[in-house]
Amino acid sequence: MASVQGTIYPAEDFDAEVDAEALHEAMKGWAHIPSFILGTDEDPIIEILANRSNAQRLEIRDQFKQMYGEHLIDRLKSELKGDFEEVVVALLTPPVEYLARCMKGAMKGMGTDEQALIEIMCAKNNQEIEELKATYAEVFDGDSLEEDIEGETSGHFKRLLVSLCNAGREEGDENDVDDGLAEEDATEIYDAGEGQRGTDESKFNSVLALRSFPHLRIMFEKYLELSGNSIDNMIDEECDGVIKDGYMAIVYCVRNIPGFFAKRINDACKGMGTDDSTLIRCIVSRSEIDLQQVKEVFETRYGRPLSEAIRDECGGDYKNMLLAVVKD
Rank of each mutant, 00 (worst) to 15 (best):
residue 1 M to K: 14
residue 1 M to R: 10
residue 3 S to W: 10
residue 6 G to Q: 10
residue 8 I to Q: 04
residue 12 E to I: 09
residue 26 A to P: 09
residue 27 M to Y: 07
residue 27 M to V: 06
residue 28 K to Q: 15
residue 31 A to K: 15
residue 35 S to R: 07
residue 42 E to A: 02
residue 48 I to M: 02
residue 48 I to W: 05
residue 50 A to M: 02
residue 54 N to K: 06
residue 59 E to H: 08
residue 61 R to Y: 11
residue 62 D to A: 14
residue 67 M to I: 11
residue 70 E to W: 06
residue 71 H to R: 12
residue 74 D to H: 04
residue 77 K to F: 05
residue 78 S to I: 07
residue 81 K to W: 05
residue 83 D to V: 00
residue 87 V to S: 08
residue 90 A to Q: 02
residue 92 L to A: 09
residue 94 P to E: 13
residue 102 C to E: 15
residue 104 K to Y: 11
residue 105 G to T: 00
residue 106 A to W: 03
residue 109 G to I: 10
residue 110 M to E: 13
residue 112 T to M: 02
residue 114 E to V: 14
residue 116 A to C: 15
residue 118 I to A: 01
residue 122 C to I: 10
residue 128 E to H: 07
residue 130 E to A: 12
residue 141 D to N: 13
residue 148 D to R: 02
residue 151 G to D: 12
residue 154 S to V: 13
residue 158 K to S: 05
residue 167 A to N: 07
residue 169 R to Y: 04
residue 171 E to R: 04
residue 172 G to C: 11
residue 179 D to E: 14
residue 188 E to Y: 00
residue 192 A to P: 08
residue 194 E to N: 02
residue 195 G to C: 03
residue 196 Q to T: 14
residue 196 Q to V: 14
residue 199 T to E: 06
residue 199 T to D: 01
residue 202 S to A: 12
residue 202 S to P: 04
residue 209 A to H: 08
residue 211 R to M: 00
residue 212 S to P: 08
residue 215 H to S: 06
residue 220 F to T: 12
residue 220 F to K: 11
residue 224 L to Q: 15
residue 228 G to L: 02
residue 234 M to E: 07
residue 240 D to T: 14
residue 241 G to A: 08
residue 244 K to G: 12
residue 245 D to M: 09
residue 253 C to G: 08
residue 254 V to F: 03
residue 254 V to E: 03
residue 257 I to Q: 10
residue 258 P to N: 02
residue 259 G to K: 06
residue 260 F to M: 14
residue 262 A to K: 02
residue 264 R to Y: 01
residue 266 N to W: 07
residue 269 C to I: 04
residue 271 G to A: 06
residue 272 M to T: 15
residue 277 S to D: 14
residue 279 L to Q: 08
residue 281 R to L: 09
residue 284 V to C: 05
residue 287 S to K: 01
residue 295 K to I: 08
residue 296 E to T: 15
residue 299 E to H: 13
residue 300 T to I: 04
residue 301 R to W: 09
residue 303 G to T: 07
residue 308 E to P: 11
residue 312 D to M: 06
residue 314 C to V: 07
residue 314 C to S: 13
residue 323 L to H: 02
residue 326 V to W: 01
residue 326 V to Y: 01
residue 326 V to D: 03
residue 327 K to P: 07
